[in-house]
Design a protein around this nucleic acid. Structure first.
Lengths: 153, 153
DNA sequence: AATGCAATTGCAAATCGTTTGCAAGAAGGA
DNA sequence: TCCTTCTTGCAAACGATTTGCAATTGCATT
């Protein structure tokens, strides 16, 4: 199977402008078959704002179509990740958690008590990272910045 | 078993000033028994400059004392981590890799071709992180910053 | 140096998250 | 509709790590 990054076929997509039919058309164009399980998983990813792990996605999927299997969830996540449609995050030990690749890049602040994930973005930090990498003779392909913190009362 | 962070009992330790006897004394003071396997693992951690994973530490340990088991390596890593004597890093999927907690905090730049890990530190980035967290109503307990890059030719 | 007991060990089996082989079942272009 | 290829569910395999257990060992105490 040959993978092409198709996410740019569906550009400027945000949580608000997200439309399933367009999305599926783009996938089909990239040679990906729209199956029942995939449609279910896609709809879950499109509707959530949190960062569920495979098991959680599986649970939600089963609630819609009980015949879906966990391996299909894993396979679909890997497929979508390869297409650039979702991002995988491995926070501190735990299982991978996924989020739809919507809008621009951001980093994460993890609430150590609740496990909540807060997204943020700092252009200044990004620039500093590039500077540092350049000084060391590298160009950054991607990065990971996670802040683990406690809510200030 | 009651754990106390003892690493500050052995302050200002650098790779150059590191002395096993002092180290072991500090551990004993914290109620940790210095066993043969632990002495071996400690010496490996003290001598290396890279970021070996448990299996690699196990291999090196076996070369010194063939009776050491992998589970003891894991148990010791967890113990030392709890004491603050080592840091655990989980880079992109792979197994945890460890490094002695020596000197001050630093982040990592991972060479995507070779897997090499380059350490760096930027006070500016640290400050920005604190600002961001504060704005979001959080105080940072710790963070993880990894740059994945390619060498510029 | 010998004693006693809790801490530590090695081993094998268990666990967790994830991947894979396989035969059966569906997608979608002709 | 037919045919080929992709996808699926299932169960078994997987890699990293943890655990239960009985045997061993460190070390504070005699």
């Amino acid at each position: 199977m040959q993978l092409t990054v198709i996410w740019n076929i569906v550009p400027r997509m945000t949580r608000e402008t997200y439309k399933k039919p367009d999305y599926e058309k783009a996938l089909r164009k990239a040679g990906i078959r729209i199956t029942r399980p995939r449609r279910v998983i896609l709809s879950i990813l499109g509707e959530t704002d949190d960062h569920p792990d495979a098991l959680e996605i599986f649970r939600r999927a089963v609630a819609i179509d009980s015949s879906i299997s966990l391996s299909t969830v894993y396979r679909t996540m890997k497929l979508l990740e390869g297409l650039g449609a979702i991002h995988r995050h491995a926070f501190e030990g735990g299982p991978s958690r996924f989020e739809q690749a919507v809008g621009e890049h951001h980093d994460h602040l993890i609430d150590m008590e609740s496990g909540d994930v807060i997204e943020f973005h700092s252009e200044k930090i990004e620039q500093l990272q590039n500077e540092i990498a350049r000084e060391l003779g590298y160009e950054i392909v991607h990065h990971r910045l996670e802040l683990y913190g406690r809510r200030i009362k």
